[in-house]
Design a protein around this nucleic acid. Sequence first.
DNA 1: CGCCCTGTTGGGGA
DNA 2: ATCCCCAACAGGGC
Length: 281
Amino acid sequence: MPELPEVETIRRALAPAVEGRVVVRMEVLDPRWCEPAPPQEVAAAVEGRRIARISRRGKYLDWELENEVHLVMHLRMTGNILLVRPEDEQPPYVRVILALGSGERALFTDPRRFGTGIVLLGDAARDTYFSERLGVEPLSPDFTAEGLKAMARGRKQPVKAFLLSQERIAGVGNIYADEALFRARIHPQRPVGTLTRPQLEALREAVIESLNAGIDARGASIDDFRHPDGARGSFQDRFLIHLREGEPCVRCGRTVKKMRAAGRGTYVCESCQPRPRARRS
DNA sequence: CGCCCTGTTGGGGA
DNA sequence: ATCCCCAACAGGGC
């Protein structure tokens, strides 16, 4: 579930509920979560600190605590944050517990245990961590056609792999990449360097539209995060192309195909998104 | 019932 | 750069 829109949804729901509160205690139940740092070291850096702000960069969630202590989380594929009251039943797959006082706790749940967390001391350390891994925020004014053009120039890399590379554009995952390519009518295996200026502009707009559609699809109420299935809305309803193998394309009616691109399952309408032919860059 | 495949992520090695 | 495998688990198909 966590691509940029899902993490942003969690951030919006969580922020008003936890900002200003103190992390009374932190329990890391799965040591792998913060590897290689020892869980008690992570807990010690966090405990007793007030939560100043919940922010997001790419698919990372940043708990900004007082004194520039950052608890940076990545939910990977199945991670989620739940806010539970004392009387609530403990949901399954809890990996980390943040006790916020008065019995309320924020839980990091994750069936597959791919999710991770790290403590970064100082805003500069946080900035470095992100800038080493993440490129432009697609929903920011920095995401321009000129920038896209510069990044794409001369590259033979398939456009889908390009969209998925977090070091270039931060936060676009498998589903939204398919969605954006469908909206822009571009085939996933098209070498990114061969895209025309109008196509790059269409792609830029399609990325933004797809991400916003994901964010808007759901009201980010904190109540969504008070039970185990919180914020996991019906998935396929929000997407025009993803998980539609064998079904008619919503635009032309031809059958949606499933293929492999950039190592991931990829859905495409070969009529709306014609296969690349010429091999130039 | 059991085996095999797939997957919303990213990192590492060939 | 690029492909493949891996992490750990659930769910579906056969």
